[in-house]
């Protein structure tokens, strides 16, 4: 049963959550990735293992954490390990199936910028920076990226390459010796972009219910390529939308 009434932000969270498979081991970024990953856990993927960079492994938070190290993460985790262990043994050690990331800017090869808008030495906007993303993007077996689509975010050229996707395309990533396969999907509020199997350039492969090709093109600074066939992302189900809204209500109550 599909929901009749949902926002584009809800569609984005639901579409992203569906890409996370049950029993996957997922390294979760804060914000949208954490929302989508926990929605997956509360719907179709009860056995997903969520790992947060502060140290919790197997976190099952009842509300969405505001920060990457909230108490609800450690209190519900299977174990909490020191932060260096997360990066050394679990990520670098090759234990992560999926890295789930957000971004401020992304390019056509799914390289991402979370560092600065403008020049590095005298930035127009100083963003928070790398955090765990460069090594997650390099070492997770695959990477999912979720962010709202706009011309300011989907840019021809990044102001700064913080974390690498498919570099300049083709076999560049393999040639650079990066351990993981890199981004396999970029989920936005308009649709889903996936890399072309040969060139690795992102192409629109699914449009969310009710969105148009023109909207997707207008929200992309580069000339957005289309997949051979473009699917329609099924709208959120009643179950998905109620799980998401319950989660957000519990989170708002906690932060009040």
């Amino acid at each position: 049963m599909f929901a009749n009434d949902f926002t584009s932000s809800e569609m984005m969270a639901v579409a992203a959550s569906r890409l996370l498979s049950d029993r996957a081991v997922c390294f979760v970024g804060i914000g949208l990735p954490s929302k989508a990953a926990n929605l997956a856990r509360l719907t179709h993927a009860p056995d997903v293992t969520l790992i947060y960079e502060s140290g919790p492994i197997g976190a099952k938070p009842d509300t969405l954490p505001l920060s990457i190290g909230d108490g609800d993460l450690s209190l519900t985790a299977d174990t909490v390990v020191p932060t260096h262990e997360i990066f050394r043994y679990w990520l670098q050690g090759g234990r992560i199936d999926v890295g789930f990331l957000g971004a401020a800017q992304i390019d056509r090869y799914a390289n991402i910028n979370t560092t600065v808008i403008g020049d590095y030495e005298s930035p127009k906007v100083r963003l928070p920076g790398a955090g765990g993303a460069p090594e997650i993007a390099a070492s997770a077996k695959e990477v999912l990226i979720v962010l709202k689509q706009s011309r300011a975010a989907f840019v021809e050229k990044l102001d700064f390459v913080t974390s690498v996707g498919h570099l300049d395309g083709g076999d560049a990533r393999i040639n650079a010796g990066l351990p993981g396969a890199g981004p396999t999907a970029v989920v936005t509020d308009i649709g889903i972009l996936t890399p072309d199997p040969i060139t690795r350039e992102l192409q629109l492969s699914s449009l969310h219910s009710g969105r148009t090709l023109d909207e997707a093109r207008d929200a992309t600074e580069w000339d957005l390529k289309l997949a051979d066939s473009i699917a329609e992302t099924p709208p959120p189900t009643e179950r998905e939308i109620s799980a998401l809204r319950d989660l957000e209500r519990r989170t708002a109550d906690r932060n009040r």
Binding site: E53, T83, H84, I86, F87, R88, L91, Q92, T115, Y120, A130, G131, G132, A133, P134, E135, A138, S139, F160, V161, T162, S163, V164, L167, A176, G177, L178, P179
Partner: peptide
């Protein structure tokens, strides 16, 4: 990056001058 600083503290505690890690390939950092 986080992985860098976490490794760098381990190196400091271990009385080593530097840490070795897989990272930073093709990053502007």
């Amino acid at each position: 990056s986080h992985a860098d600083l976490a490794n760098a503290y381990v190196a400091g505690a271990s009385n080593l001058p530097f840490a070795v890690m897989r990272g930073y390939v093709a990053s502007d950092l």
